[in-house]
Design a binder for these strands. Structure first.
Lengths: 161, 161
DNA sequence: ATATTCTTTCAATAATTTTTGAAAGTTCTA
DNA sequence: TAGAACTTTCAAAAATTATTGAAAGAATAT
C-alpha cells in the first residue's frame, strides 16, 4: 500500500493522474492478474475511475487484459519487465509532447517576424537551439534503447560512474 | 506570445506551473533583462504570481537577477544556454523526486513482509528491479552530462541514428 | 426473449493546484 | 524620520483536473 501511494504521488507530480499511477503500481506489485472489483476494493477507487484509467494503461502498453477460462470477468496484469515499461512510458510521452513542440519550433524558426533585427535573430536562434537540443535528446534515447542490453555499453556505464 | 503559451502548456503537462514556464519562456525569448512590471504586462500575470515564480526560477538556476546601475528596480534574465538550462531542470527534479523514491525502494526491499512467500518474493524483486533501473537511468544522465560536448560521442550519436 | 453479469460512459461533484491582489515588509532617498 | 519605490507574503478565489456513481450498453447464459 505504501508503494501504491508513493507511486501515485510521483505520477501526480509528473502530470500522470494519481489513480492511473496507483492502479499501475498495484498491478506491478501483484503477482497475478486482478479484476476491476479487486482493484476497486484494494485501493478504494470508483468503478468508473478504474475502468477509464485501466484503459489508459492499456493504451500505454503498460497493462494487458487477460481472460480466465470459464469466467466472463476481465482480468488485468501489468507488464512486469521494467525496461519495457520505461520504454513504453517514454515513447508515449514522446508521441504526445515532443512532436507538437518540434512542429511549433520549426514553424516559428522560419516565420517572418516584425521587430528589431537583433531581437528577431535572438529569437530565431533560440528556436534553432531548442530544436537541435530536442533532437539530440531524442537520439540519445534511441541509442539507449538500442544499446541498453549491450555488454560493452553496460561496462562503459559502470566504468564511468 | 505563441511560444510563451506553448511552453506554458508543456510545462503544465509535466507538473511545472504554467506561469512559471511562461515567465521562463518570455525571458528566454527576450534579448535583454526584464523587470517584474514588464513581465506582468506582457503576459498578464499578477505581481504576486510573477514574484513567486521568478524566485522559483532563480532557485532552479534558470534565471538570474540583474541590477541596472542607477536603478533600484530588479531585472531578470534567463540563462540562455540551452544545455545548462536542461541540466538544471534535470538536476532539480532529480533532487526532488529521485531521491525520495530510492529511499522508499530500499526500505521496502529490505522490510520483513507478511504473506505468501511467493508474493513477497515477487514484490521484493520488483523493488530491486526498480532500484537498479533508476540507478542506471541516473548513470546514463551523468554520462550524458560528461560527454555531451565530447567529439567522439557526438559522432557516435550521429552515426547511430 | 429475458435475465444476469459485467463493462462503459459522462454529467455532476470533489479535490487539487494555481493565481490573485491587497496589505505588510523592505530599502533607499532627502 | 517620513516618504517614495519597490518587493514579498499569504488567505481567498479561480481555474483546472480528477473522480464518482448511476444509468445505459454489451455480452452471454437460460
Amino acid at each position: 500500500m505504501e508503494f501504491v501511494q508513493t507511486w501515485g504521488s510521483i505520477g501526480s507530480s509528473w502530470g500522470i493522474p494519481r489513480s492511473m499511477a496507483q492502479i499501475h503500481a498495484l498491478l506491478l506489485a501483484n503477482n497475478e492478474a486482478m479484476s476491476t472489483e479487486e482493484v476497486m476494493e484494494t485501493i478504494q477507487l470508483s468503478r468508473g475511475n478504474v475502468n477509464i484509467n485501466m484503459r489508459e494503461l492499456i493504451n500505454w502498453n503498460l497493462v494487458v487484459k487477460q481472460n480466465k477460462i470459464g469466467e466472463r470477468k476481465e482480468y488485468f496484469m501489468a507488464n512486469s519487465d521494467i525496461m519495457t515499461m520505461a520504454q513504453n512510458i517514454v515513447s508515449e510521452r514522446k508521441k504526445r509532447e515532443l512532436k507538437p513542440v518540434l512542429e511549433l519550433l520549426n514553424r516559428l524558426k522560419n516565420e517572418k517576424l516584425e521587430g528589431k533585427q537583433e531581437d528577431v535573430t535572438h529569437f530565431q536562434s533560440l528556436m534553432q537551439e531548442l530544436d537541435d537540443f530536442i533532437k539530440q535528446l531524442d537520439q540519445l534515447l534511441e541509442i539507449w534503447l538500442k544499446l541498453k542490453d549491450n555488454y560493452f555499453f553496460k561496462k562503459m556505464i559502470k566504468t564511468m560512474s
